[in-house]
Design a protein around this nucleic acid. Sequence first.
DNA 1: TTATTTATGTATCAATCATTACAAAAATAA
DNA 2: TTATTTTTGTAATGATTGATACATAAATAA
Lengths: 193, 193
Amino acid sequence: MRGRPTIYEDANIVKKAQEVFWQKGYSATSLSDLQKATGAGAGSFYNTFKGGKKEVFQKAIEERRLAFDAFKIELSKSESPLELIKDFFRSIASAEENEHLKGCIIANTVVEMTFIDENLEANAVQILKEVEQMFTEAIKNEQTIGNLKTQTDPEILGRYLITFWCGLNTLRRMYPDKNILKKQIEMQLAVIS
Amino acid sequence: MRGRPTIYEDANIVKKAQEVFWQKGYSATSLSDLQKATGAGAGSFYNTFKGGKKEVFQKAIEERRLAFDAFKIELSKSESPLELIKDFFRSIASAEENEHLKGCIIANTVVEMTFIDENLEANAVQILKEVEQMFTEAIKNEQTIGNLKTQTDPEILGRYLITFWCGLNTLRRMYPDKNILKKQIEMQLAVIS
DNA sequence: TTATTTATGTATCAATCATTACAAAAATAA
DNA sequence: TTATTTTTGTAATGATTGATACATAAATAA
C-alpha cells in the first residue's frame, strides 16, 4: 500500500466520537468536540469520513447495533436465554453514575432525532425493534417449553420489555442509585415469570 | 401605562416557542426558528426575555409543569383518582401521530439536557418526580381504602408508572399506532389493580 | 532516485449562531 | 404640543458552525 501511513484509524475515531455523541447527542456535538476527542484534525476527519459529522454518527450507531447483535449470538448459545435477558436488565442497576446519565444511545437518538433527521430516526427505531424482537422470541420459546406461567401474548411481553428498557433510560437519570434501580428492575421483571 | 403597546405578549411567545422546542428540542432550535414561530423579531424577543433562548425554554417547561399541577387539582377533586390517572394513560393511545412524535417535553428534556445544562436537566427531573409523587399518593390512598388487590409498596408502583410514562415516550415514536399503544397501555395498567 | 499516492495539519470558507445596538414607532403623561 | 416611556424592526455584532482548499509529510512503486 502506497501513501502516508494512517495514524487515526477509522474504528478508533468512531469509538471516540461515539463517546461524545452518547453524552451530548447529535446536535449539541460540534466538529470541534469531535476533533478534540479523536485527536484527528479536519484534514484527517473529512478524508476518512466524506459524509462528515452525520456519517460518523451513523457509524457510531451502527457499532452499537453490532453490540446488540453480539448479545443476540450469546443468547442463541445460552441454555436459559430469558434469564440472560433478565440479567442484562439487572446489570443496569450496578452501572456507574456516568453510565446512568449516558443512558442508551439508541433510545436517546429516537427521542432527539424525531423532527431533525428522518433517516437517523428510522435507523434507531429499527434497532429498538430488533431488540424487541429478540425479547419476544426468547419469551415465546420459554412459553412453548412451559417455563413461564404467564400466557400473555409474547408480542405484548416483548413490547413490555422494550418499553421498560426505554423507561429505564430516563429513570436511571432521575435516580442514578443502585438500590432504587435494583428494586424497580426486579419488580418489573417479575411480570415475566 | 406609557410606551408603545405590546403586540407580542409574553404568554403567547412562550406558547409558540414551546411548540417548536417540543418538536426539535433545545439545541436544535435556533433563535431564527423561534422568531419565525412567534412572529416577534430580535428586538421584541430580547426586550421580553433578557435571558434569551434559555429563559424562554425554561418558561416553556414551567408552563408544562402548570399543566401537571392543574391535573393534580382535578385529581384531588375526583372520586376515583387512580381511574383518572389510568384514563390519562389511556388517552395517549388516541392521540394524533404528530403528538406521538412530539412525546413528553419533560421526558425529552431529561434525555437531551443531561450533559448540556445542569439546571434545565435538574428542573425537568424534578417535575417528573412530582408527577411520580402524584401517582404514588393516588395508589397509596386506594390501597388504604382497600380498592387495590396489589399490596406492593406504593413507592414502587409510583415509580413503575413514571417509568412506564417515560417508556411510552419512546414507544409512541416506534409505534404511533392507536391499537398497538392501546393494548400495551391496558396490559401495563393491569399491574395496578 | 524519482514519481506516485495517501494522510495530515492549517488556513480559510460561507453560513449560521445567539445576542446587542440603535433608531423609529406608538403609546401616555405633563 | 412636547417630553417621556416602552415596544418594535432592522442592522450589525463577534463567535462558532460544518466543511473545503491546499501545501506538506511520509510512505511505496517504479
